[in-house]
Design a protein around this nucleic acid. Sequence first.
RNA 1: GUCCCAGUAGCUCAGCAGGAUAGAGCAACAGCCUUCUAAGCUGUGGGUCGCAGGUUCGAAUCCUGCCUGGGACGCCA
Length: 556
Amino acid sequence: MNVLEQTEETLKQEIAAAAIQAGLASEAELPAVNLEKPKEKAHGDFATNIAMQLARIAKKAPRKIAEDIVEQLDKSKAQVEKVEIAGPGFINFFMKQDFLEEVIPAILEAGETYGRTNTGNGERVQVEFVSVNPTGDLHVGHARGAAFGDVLCNMLEAAGYEVEREYYINDAGNQIDNLALSVEARYLQALGQDAEVPEDGYRGEDIVEIGKSLHKEYGDKWLREPQADRLAFFKEYGLDFELGKIKQDLADFGVEFDSWFSERTLYDGEQISGALQTLKDGGYIYEEDGATWFRSTDFGDDKDRVLIKGDGNFTYLTPDIAYHKNKMDRGFDQIINVWGSDHHGYIPRMRAAIQALGYPVEKFDVKTIQMVNLFEQGEKQKMSKRAGTAVGLRELMEEIGIDAVRYFFVARSNDSQLDFDLDLARSQSNDNPVFYVQYAHARICTMLELAKSRGFETEGDVDASLLTAEKETDLLKKLGEFPQAVADGAEKHAPQRVTNYVFDLASLLHSFYNAEKVLDPDNEDLTRARIALMKAVRITLANAMGLIGVRAPEKM
RNA sequence: GUCCCAGUAGCUCAGCAGGAUAGAGCAACAGCCUUCUAAGCUGUGGGUCGCAGGUUCGAAUCCUGCCUGGGACGCCA
């Protein structure tokens, strides 16, 4: 727990004690004391609404309750300078200036670990994301999911969760057979033969490439082999190629997985039949029209779902159920899936399956990622996978840069569609929030360099009580909020909390920079204190950017 | 028809488990570089929080209904 939290905690306890002492409520009746940081400076450093909450219990007017609490409050214990009652019954606390003085040493001490908390308490969370079929390149939508999942994991880790990042490889089933057929067609074409990519095959340039490379490597060897052998080989070849590319793209994007889970292993280990048996034992399976059905409507799904088709093959759902059983059996406290929003209709049946298998559905959560629209020169870009105009992650990274792409993708709520302005993301101007934030970091680094070269003392204890300018206390308060912002964002699965935070902090830094001069030869003590402040801001900016996966440059 | 997401300033979006006078960026307008990076800062204008009810001391936030936009509703994956 850091110093600011300590201050808040003490204050909360004192408020609770005062309320009980005033006879407003018993310990059991008293709601949790809520402390907020008022937007309005005139409303103090902290405020509580406890008087309003107690109105019903104490059967008194809120303002009267507030008065009673204030009367009983032991101000000395909680570092309170002044208390005011305002509005409908808010109690506003003005803290003694020195409550902020501990912030800088705490940050300098923590360094790279500043922002970490233990709200997660070591709970094990598994996040499965991207999980794109290995049949083509990652496009912008996948990229958004990748950025979201990765940043979410970073935040969860910072908040004290034990996180596993997993990618589910759909390397079995229909779509992979289609991949093999598509590769075959391109191979034959590379040999100059007349061949058509099947109706539901894959038409991407990458498949053409695979065909060519097969031709180069093997000549017409596979023409002479039986088709079954040929397809079996092409399947593996195509899979390796596509998966290799996906892995490379993700790695370049800064996303590393702890585990790559192959769908095939579910077949090998008889996990699918096991899952089916469990469902059957529960009485959730029935036969109709030559197919095997899962009665998902027992758990609120719209309709029942086919598990085994009339032709004897599984539907996509069946191995997926086994996969989730596998995940559950691995003992995670929480399982988070990041899916494209176009798969949201799939959620009820998966929830149903988890319940039918006998697992607590509260452990299962799905985050859906809304569509990305690319804009260039004010025009929305038409994207179609089929027409080959879909923009890939690779292209985006090369054109825009990893930093901007990652930042833009997590700056918005996953529930909102994202208008991605390519010109803005590319621009090296103040309009671009990524540069704005990075510039703040670089500015500080330059100052710190300069401080050294001009011979200012940059180490040792400083007198933080000298930092009383408005811009300075603003910065100190904001710095103190960082761990809470991260923990909050992690808890709510809201990465945009961190982009918002880091933008605000950068803004305060720029504002401070323009208002006050850090390196002042005529005031060494103040200079030392400000250098320490700059270090603390730099650390916090860097840590926040680290969570987003954006570089913190020392020069720009 | 059912389900999911969104609807907040001209535009793009925040709004933290209900709180005080709803915020930011862009755009518009007016200022700030003999001084640590002007990739920056300061100020001004701009709002029926889609609509209608409800819950309560208090609603952009929770509930219900409706409207608009996007998406999903397969023995595809």
